[in-house]
Write a protein that binds this DNA or RNA. Structure first.
Lengths: 275, 275
DNA sequence: TTGCATTTGTACGTATGTATC
DNA sequence: GGATACATACGTACAAATGCA
């Protein structure tokens, strides 16, 4: 509980490092309350804002949860695993893994909207159509008990979908989305591409996920094309960054060349060749 | 260039939002210099630290680069795309996409080290061996011109690797890593699993990638097992978060069941079913 | 219910250090 | 060396949320 003024590290970083080590080392158990910021301030002999800065860092890292008026608490550090989009199509067509029962999926909106930014670009880039087109969007939330853990939206071209179709109702489907889309439109899914990145949560996402608006999220952009190469669906999905991880499991191709589902390389960029 | 004191948003967030909109809207071009912080401070009529807070936010988001003594500059917003691990094994065994010429891969270390945390757990969890075992590690850096864009490490069990093998030299291999490992050990790669998350850069990573230590990175943990199910390689890789994205492209399984490389579901967690 | 003390969150003004030009 | 610009810290002040008497 002491900072070293001669160190090249800032006092706030030194304090953050010490608290981090104590949390990860088990000195503070998950759910336990840390000393208050004024108490830490006195303990380290620094200004209050210096401690506050360290706390801010650890909160962004996901180690701490701060409750104004109450205190600063250690968060449960276990990471929540989600499967990559590839998994949603299953091993063979039609198979689809069931969710554990404690998860509830809520489709809280279904209707026509103007897509923004990435989604419009994903639709417009391939189809060449007017980028201002309105699309059918289905917004969903995945809840674990009380805690929202995933928020997403699926964007579809409304053309060819019957007016009374289940896709237009704000209810969970009784089958995977892509099967419902295939049934409604008669088009077939052919290929898909995922793009994963990290960014800060938008105000909407922060509110839905009940996280602070300046915390990072893992964001996925999923683009599915039909057998003619036309975009049939664009989906976005995001998770609280520091407490989530995406997983992908697969077989390494055998010596005999076989269909393995790889397509042409993406944009100019680096390859992941861990040599 | 005005803040609204009656708004529920903080002044610093209001300023960040305005600057963000101006940058994304094109009012400030990439590479262009923003007004200095004292100038913005006077323009908004707030304290200097309030503007500094907004600048900090935008820097973490990757929109700005700040150079002490020089100024605040708009960063090129284009995202760099990297392929997921799946791509490294190619469509069929032996095929491997070449890197664009402007990328240089530097293997800056190869030797025996004690793995830490995630890596040891990945090795130990499956093999059940002592978690304190030393491993062969190959550390690499991918450089685009002057800018490092990827830093990673491959961890291998040193047993069964000849003393004069290329894997022990700190040089880039002339073939994909997994092929070299198979040749050196006689073991065959069977399955692999990736895990993607976001976290803050470690001091080492920040220095290698030339980013600030408090910026988020995309981190990948790659676990490869041989045909007997034993862990044969664990690799880590990380990219500057806000300026990178990972891509994965694949075919949706056809109606006839065929080998597609999916394995059993991972841990308890949510499925990515964008219904 | 009311009132008060505690705690977090943010801002202000000032000061100092360091890097760049 | 001097001016400029970013980075951090200090001390103070106030608002909002919480919890308790």
């Amino acid at each position: 509980m002491r900072i070293n003024p001669g160190s090249p590290e800032n006092p706030s970083r030194q304090i953050a490092a010490q608290l981090r080590a104590q949390i990860l080392g088990g000195s503070y158990q998950p759910g336990e309350r840390l000393p208050s910021i004024p108490a830490l301030t006195e303990g380290y002999g620094v200004a209050k804002q210096t401690v506050q800065r360290a706390i801010d860092q650890l909160r962004i890292e996901g180690l701490l949860v701060t409750k104004p008026g109450s205190g600063t608490y250690v968060r449960a550090t276990r990471r929540r695993l989600s499967r990559l989009s590839r998994g949603r199509y299953g091993t063979v067509r039609g198979y689809h893994a069931a969710l554990p029962v404690r998860y509830r999926r809520r489709v809280y909106f279904a209707g026509i909207e103007q897509p923004s930014g990435d989604v419009a670009h994903a639709f417009g880039a391939a189809s060449g159509a007017a980028s201002g087109a309105s699309l059918l969007v289905r917004r969903h939330l995945l809840v674990d008990g009380e805690q929202p853990v995933e928020v997403g939206a699926a964007w579809l071209s409304p053309g060819g979908i019957p007016r009374d179709d289940a896709l237009l109702r704000a209810e969970a489907l009784d089958q995977p989305l892509y099967q419902a889309v295939e049934e409604a439109t008669g088009r077939r899914y052919g290929t898909a591409a995922d793009q994963i990145t990290t960014r800060l949560a938008t105000p909407d996402e922060a509110q839905l996920l009940r996280i602070r608006p300046d915390t990072p999220v893992l964001a996925l952009l999923h683009i599915a094309r039909d057998t003619h190469g036309d975009v049939i669906e664009v989906s976005t999905c995001c998770w609280p960054g520091p407490t989530s991880a995406l997983t992908d499991e697969y077989q390494v191709p055998g010596p005999t060349p076989g269909q393995h589902g790889e397509l042409t390389p993406p944009e100019p960029g680096s390859d992941l060749t861990l040599a």
